[in-house]
């Protein structure tokens, strides 16, 4: 058990750098591996990183001489850039592996790729992969730390952490807040990680989706399940929208974009059911007019760009927490 000396879990002040660190994990594979104390520690560390990022000179040297490899088997400009900036602000040497041109295309297995990279002695590998569990598999085959930057429809832990940080900065806490996650829950790793994190931090979680976008057993993951969006948004403190993959709205799952938008797109009328001070979130990239109205996406209640900023801070915190452990051991 982790020593429980930092239980002021919803401290939003966040300007003080934590002095006592308990985070002792080697990898960040998923929120399911974290307890509330560890989550809080990462959020507190990230608060401090926000301040560094807002300075004119953003350099910190805690990871000087350390090597970070970003290994993205799926394209993601924003997450990859976020990890790259995070590593560089801490002084790490960051390498982006271009998977499209690498030997992976020639049929090399994930395990072989892992063994090859491992031999180059990196300190941390940031991995995104289309298959659930792929990042955990890779972590078993390398000596360094591994960060899951999204694996299939399983987890995307840094997204959940950055969402939690954004919520905490706006609402002062996570505990007791009603958070409605809306859209394609079944195919979303963001939803899974958020449900795990928010559940662990005692937020009241809701999912809102058409039945065929709710995964089997979702009632065990969220406190409440809604298929009616107006009902689902009633009294919500946070409305978290998910991206709808276009190919799913062409008759295979959802008949059309306009039907989806009519029932599950976030517009002013539906948002009115949430609390007056409810914030609106989206992991990006957004489809305006599909899952969210442009006026809301760019409106005063949207914290979507703040999420992007918190993304860098959270990733800096995670990198430092993991690599500080490596140094100690």
């Amino acid at each position: 058990m982790t020593p429980n000396s930092r239980t002021n879990s919803d401290n939003a002040s966040g300007t003080n750098v934590p002095t006592q660190h308990h985070f002792s994990q080697k990898h960040l594979l998923g929120i399911s591996h974290l307890n509330p104390v560890e989550i809080t520690e990462l959020l507190d560390r990230a608060e401090a990183m926000v301040d560094i990022s807002r300075q004119p000179r953003k350099a910190k040297h805690s990871l000087k001489g350390r090597t970070q490899i970003n290994l993205f088997f799926e394209n993601s400009t924003r997450t990859q850039s976020s990890f790259e900036i995070a590593g560089k602000r801490l002084g790490a040497d960051v390498l982006n592996m271009a998977v499209q041109t690498s030997s992976v295309k020639k049929g090399e297995t994930l395990i072989d790729t892992a063994a090859t990279l491992n031999a180059m002695q990196p300190d941390v590998i940031v991995v995104r992969h289309a298959a659930s569990g792929a990042v955990e598999l890779l972590s078993q085959k390398v000596a360094c730390s591994v960060i899951n930057a999204g694996d299939g429809t399983h987890e995307h832990p840094t997204q959940a952490l950055l969402d939690a940080l954004t919520i905490r900065r706006n609402k002062g806490r996570l505990n007791g807040l009603t958070v409605a996650i809306c859209g394609d829950i079944a195919n979303s790793r963001v939803a899974r990680s958020n449900l795990l994190l928010l559940g662990a931090m005692n937020a009241r979680t809701r999912v809102v989706a058409p039945k065929n976008m709710l995964p089997t057993g979702v009632e065990h993951m969220a406190a409440e399940v809604f298929t009616d969006m107006e009902e689902g948004l009633k009294g919500a403190d946070v409305v978290m929208m998910l991206r709808l993959q276009h190919e799913r709205a062409s008759g295979k799952m959802i008949p059309s974009v306009r039907e989806f938008y009519h029932f599950y797109g976030l517009d002013e009328r539906k948002l009115a059911f949430a609390k007056d001070d409810a914030i609106v979130m989206h992991p990006g990239p957004m489809n305006r007019g599909v899952e969210i109205a442009p006026t809301i996406a760019d409106g005063p209640r949207s914290v979507i760009t703040e999420q992007v900023e918190m993304g860098v801070a959270v990733r800096m915190a995670v990198l430092e927490a993991l690599l500080a452990n490596g140094e100690a051991s």
Binding site: G133, D151, G152, H154, G217, V218, M221
Partner: peptide, 13 residues
């Protein structure tokens, strides 16, 4: 198998 375990692992059931 389709169910809560598959959902939790992010695997198609």
């Amino acid at each position: 198998n389709s169910g809560i375990l598959a959902t939790g692992l992010g695997l198609k059931g």
